[in-house]
Design a protein around this nucleic acid. Structure first.
Lengths: 340, 340
DNA sequence: GCAACTACTGTGCACGTTCACAGCGCGGTT
DNA sequence: AACCGCGCTGTGAACGTGCACAGTAGTTGC
């Protein structure tokens, strides 16, 4: 098998073989395959036929060497790795970007940078020119990776507003603030008056903006007792819900800044003997797959993940082409289910 | 910004710059960086210092061109993309492989091949020599991709026994059959006598082997009424559970071939008014993150995912080095929680 | 009828690295 | 004294591609 393989590798046809088979020169083959400008119809056909018979596929390394382009892109996740499979959002983003980029034949390299060691490795790897651009999924601010990437001059698109870098780094994000307003207004319209919230971490855009939306609607009536901080994990949602019940046992609604935390909150409410939505209404955020698997199913704010990934890819490809970084803010939508 | 970038790209130091800075030749720099054999201590130090001052990082394209190695690996998922984020198993596998390979500085390319178009694209991409090997996560048999990959002679490691190709393709898998036996024996020891099962699809190794283990223990007493087929999705688990309750309302236990399907089964049992585990004991398979998030928490069979990914990577790197394909079967473990 | 232009084609060079080879000085054996 | 082996070093080739350039033939314009 080993011999087979190395033989197969040796025998891979090159552009020379195609040229010979088609009776033209290397240059013509190259032109024919890259756009086909200034190539006679006869030559073009001969080349295409020769490609078919020889089974030629261009060597990406050779091409990269001369074009100075890697023709690939990195998807970098700075969250603790565990998140990738606990929180479906990350998988959806990854999947969406991969698919979007596959359309234009750009492969995606998956890298994590949650620890110091990983960050160094990823940083060096990207600096080596292994990729043409970076899709950065990093909610927490203050990560040195973003600065390192900016210094190396490689195109970057962040997912979610990169706090502190809004002007310099391209990003695509849902309109968190108005999404939060939608939900809180919905809870009010359901007659709820003691509306609590479980926020994301204060160093993340979702943590900041969704809380701001909550305050936009409730204004002065938002007592500190009704606000608890979570960390976007299920366990964090459970802890925050327990704290809220302790401080404000009379609450009649909770707006939770992520579906995963909301699932945790539902468990705690259930264990405390409260009925959802009769005693307490619960609203989530994301509309991830979790929202339909809880009991009761979760009323939530839908993030337009497909549009987000599409925009991320568009913004990245633009920058790789040389255009300046831009931002894209996308609208959210209220999805009403059984939990309110 | 565009100018900055291209300038930065132009200015990337090459091995020549390092050689000049260190006062040695290219060859010595290359040797110093690749193993350091036959390099004097003085030269070695000079090179390392020059690398530090110049910020040199080897150009992967140039290296690949001459070594005929891509130094990267593809992770190919043939399941419908949705699975990646519905079923945490896939994320765990992906994450595990990525991390394991990062240790040896090998990046992972993520590709899906669930549709005809995607499969062609992936196949062509791999044939182009973009990667040195493939980690294949494809439970269903009969996918032409496996044959295509074998024909192209590229090293492949499958996750789970590749039915019909066991002899030719390397793989790492949990010992599904004995794992299933563990669970069914456990249910018997809890005094259950009408033990049903929800299986995986019959064209997947998990579907076949876990059912075989179930039959190993129950033998003749396994009536067809107690066996329903699922598709590893939550909805599939719900449907199968509903069918079982229809056919055998007196069942007192279910062994479900995946945690995700078990979560669906729990919902249906709950809706039917049965208590778990008092009326019906439920056992899952995988010990994924779902198992601890259900109510009650799920007794399940732990798949050693970390060892599986480690073995997959080891088997792949071995093959890339030229060794023949091998297989690795790993033991499972019963994890008892509240659902039995 | 000659120059200018157009459409196409072939060739040398460069991209940055590794590898094989030859060369060098040095100490020890014949 | 000549030889050999050994550790280390420099140099030329190759890897396969795209691109700039030069060149050719055929058409157009004055």
């Amino acid at each position: 098998m080993s011999v087979e393989r190395s033989k197969a590798a040796r025998n891979r046809p090159t552009i020379h073989d195609v040229a010979a088979a088609a009776g033209v020169s290397r240059g013509t083959v190259s032109r024919a395959l890259n756009g086909g400008r200034n190539v006679s119809p006869a030559a073009l056909e001969a080349v295409l036929k020769a490609v078919r018979t020889t089974g030629y596929v261009a060597n990406p390394a050779a091409r990269s060497l001369v074009t100075q382009r890697a023709h690939s892109v990195a998807f970098v996740l700075t969250e603790p790795q565990q998140r990738l499979f606990e929180d479906p959002n990350f998988s959806i983003l990854l999947q969406g970007c991969t698919q979007e980029l596959a359309e234009v034949d750009v492969p995606v390299l998956l890298m994590t940078a949650s620890t110091e060691v990983e960050r160094k490795r990823t940083s060096r790897f990207i600096a080596a020119g292994h990729v043409d651009g970076v899709l950065l999924v990093s909610s927490h601010t203050g990560n040195p990776l973003l600065d390192e990437l900016r210094d190396s001059g490689i195109p970057v698109v962040a997912c979610g507003k990169p706090l502190g870098h809004e002007r310099q780094v391209a990003y695509a994000a849902a309109d968190d603030r108005s999404g939060a307003r939608l939900m809180v207004e919905h809870l009010l319209s359901r007659g709820r008056r003691r509306i609590a919230t479980i926020t994301g971490p204060p160093d993340t855009p979702g943590g900041v903006e969704r809380l701001a939306g909550y305050r936009d609607v409730l204004g002065e009536s938002a007592s500190p007792d009704l606000i608890a901080h979570g960390d976007y994990s299920r366990a964090g949602g459970e802890a925050a819900m327990a704290a809220l019940l302790e401080r404000a046992p009379d609450l009649d609604a909770v707006f939770v800044a992520s579906d995963l935390m909301a699932a945790g909150a539902l468990n705690v409410l259930h264990d405390s003997g409260r009925r959802v939505p009769q005693d307490v209404a619960v609203g989530g955020f994301d509309d991830s797959s979790i929202a339909t698997s809880t009991r009761p199913a979760l009323t939530t704010v839908r993030q337009p993940f497909q549009r987000i990934t599409r925009e991320m890819v568009r913004l990245l490809l633009e920058q790789i082409r040389g255009e300046p970084p831009a931002a894209s803010i996308l609208p959210t939508e209220l999805v009403v289910r059984a939990s309110t």
